[in-house]
Amino acid sequence: MNDSEIVSLYWARDEAAISESDAKYGAYCRSIAWNILQIDEDADEIVNDTWLGAWNAMPPHRPSVLSTFLGKITRRLSLKRWRFKNARKRGGGETALALDELMDCIPDGKSVDEHLEVEHLSRVIDDFLAGLPKAERQVFVRRYWYMSSIAEICRQYGFSKSKTESMLHRTRKKLLVKLNEEGVFL
């Protein structure tokens, strides 16, 4: 079943939308959730929550790319759960590592409202990514959007570990420069 047919099922409030989503994107969403949470049961539950989130969002939403729409829900829910668990003495895994690495990109300065900051930051990061060479952009997105491990990225792109790590390091430094240029303070 193609994406527009699945979206139509959501709009028609047909529960087959969930089974079709699961069949087509279950593995994709689960891998995102697992990368962040690294516990099987958590990942399974987040995938269930993703279908519930999609059910609540469609209508009124009609996503143009269903995979990334569902992936975004999964990522958001997984991070929320990760924070909840981390706050209660849980956590670790790729998410903690990714957060540590991203500290490289944090400029010094005053805090501002977090919601405005996230929206503005996204636009800055969009511009930043658009200006990167394709390979660097893909590796950055694999690491910090999909939370893929370094080993997984190496396997996917055929890069060595040191090349992947130095590429990410360079990209983070460039992002820091960009954020400073744009006057972003976190």
Binding site: L79, V118, L121, S122, V141
Partner: peptide, 14 residues
């Protein structure tokens, strides 16, 4: 602070 950055990355262009 890096969590804000991670959230922002979550909202990048599809």
């Amino acid at each position: 602070k890096s969590e804000i950055l991670l959230d922002a990355i979550g909202e990048i262009r599809e």
